[in-house]
Design a protein around this nucleic acid. Structure first.
Lengths: 231, 231
DNA sequence: GACCGGGTATGAAATGCTTCACCGCGGGGG
DNA sequence: CCCCCGCGGTGAAGCATTTCATACCCGGTC
């Protein structure tokens, strides 16, 4: 991969020059995962970091009874598996590929060595972690304060922002998300999602179209997401 | 505050020598908050970091209808308000003193300057952030997978670990936690907590004693916390 | 001393969500 | 080619929690 591409794809390394690039390149190992494959399991020993080159993965916490909670869906350019790097503890979640996914894998000691000399990378990393914390806090708050209708509307909007493809006045969500996945993202059963989703469809807010979701009326969804269910 | 005290109270600065100490000391501003006072509100501009010297605070997210979700209770030696420092965004939560609390306040640019030269502090910071993420993820997972009984048992155990004072075979939780607070920690109503708490009392797992909780039977609580409600 | 606000206690009624049961569809593998 | 499994769809019943209503106790204060 040329330097320019690296810098474009991974803002983390935006400040890199040629010499740093060359020493970094030696440490990167390319990894390829097909759809459904798991990168690692919660509880595993974790000594490496992934940079997602292309594809998408889901970050989940499994329950002992086989259900799963989806914490995040990550795509190209994003960082993955950094937690274990910083505290040396086991993997905090399971990660599975949702599509064919390619990553660059970087080992703990190489990465820490990298950090030591580059304060700009440290700054960006701190920012990434801060964002993760904000996101999880928001999820938690939503789960406390909102009912399923609002949570679903919000989640659809989020997905639209993260993976949306503009199509005229509509936005198509560019990942295949099953209703079951939606359910484990917002903490509800598939059946509840199904019913709520139908309600949104009946109100012409969204459309389902071969596995992907299309947002028809963004404003309407925003209203659903924020109207307060307990007045 | 002498250097030795600083190093003992705040592991973050364990590696500090005399000269660094002197330059740090110039930047620290002592702040005092009485019980109930708020340090800052969610949404505020946030340009500073607090090191808690003594006392305890609660970190909360308020809902628009006046309820609150308690994300964490922090005590002496802990860090507070670091998120806004790293991403420049507004305060992600409201923080209120639960007791008389004294902190050292450090401004953004002073802190960043500190970081720039001290990789050991960066490492510890990353560790702190990683731990926060793990904790929030765990809260979220609990909220998804466990019922109120298990969540309450778990929370009581957590509080015991964090603020417990050994008293013979018992552990007294050294903070005044109202049932309402417990409720906003685990995401339930005060009434539900009350009933569940009574159940625990009837089983001689815990005892309430003038505002504080005493754990009588740790093992029993552990069992309650982990037995799976949906078999 | 009377009043009031905040915390605790408790039961009955209401309800949002889950559980369960069932159906149809489509696609991938034997 | 057919079978089965995973996904979407839907209604009825069940239930965990919330909501509501009420009461008591305690400490402060007017």
């Amino acid at each position: 991969m040329p330097l320019a591409t690296l810098r474009r794809k991974f803002p983390l390394f935006a400040g890199f020059g040629r010499s740093e690039f060359e020493s970094l390149e030696k440490c990167l190992v390319r990894r390829r995962y097909s759809c459904g494959q798991t990168l690692f399991h919660m509880g595993d020993e974790g000594g490496s970091l992934h940079l997602i080159e292309r594809g998408r993965v889901k970050v989940t916490i499994p329950s002992t009874s086989g259900e799963e909670l989806i914490l995040a869906i990550l795509g190209g350019g994003e960082l993955l598996g950094e937690l274990s790097l910083f505290d040396g503890k086991p993997r905090s979640a399971t990660v599975q590929a949702l599509e064919t996914t390619e990553t660059f894998c970087l080992h703990r000691k190489d990465f820490l060595a990298l950090l030591r000399n580059r304060f700009d990378i440290v700054e960006k990393l701190l920012e990434v972690l801060a964002r993760r914390i904000r996101e999880t806090n928001a999820l938690l708050a939503d789960r406390y304060f909102l009912d399923i209708t609002s949570r679903l509307a919000k989640k659809i909007l989020d997905l639209g922002d993260a993976f949306g493809i503009q199509e005229g006045r509509q936005v198509r969500i560019g990942v295949n998300i099953t209703q079951k996945n939606l359910a484990s993202m917002i903490g509800a059963t598939r059946e509840s999602i199904n019913k709520q989703f139908k309600a949104f469809r009946d109100q012409d807010l969204v459309r389902a179209c071969g596995g992907t979701i299309v947002i028809l009326n963004r404003e309407g969804l925003v209203r659903k997401a924020s109207i307060f269910p307990k007045p």
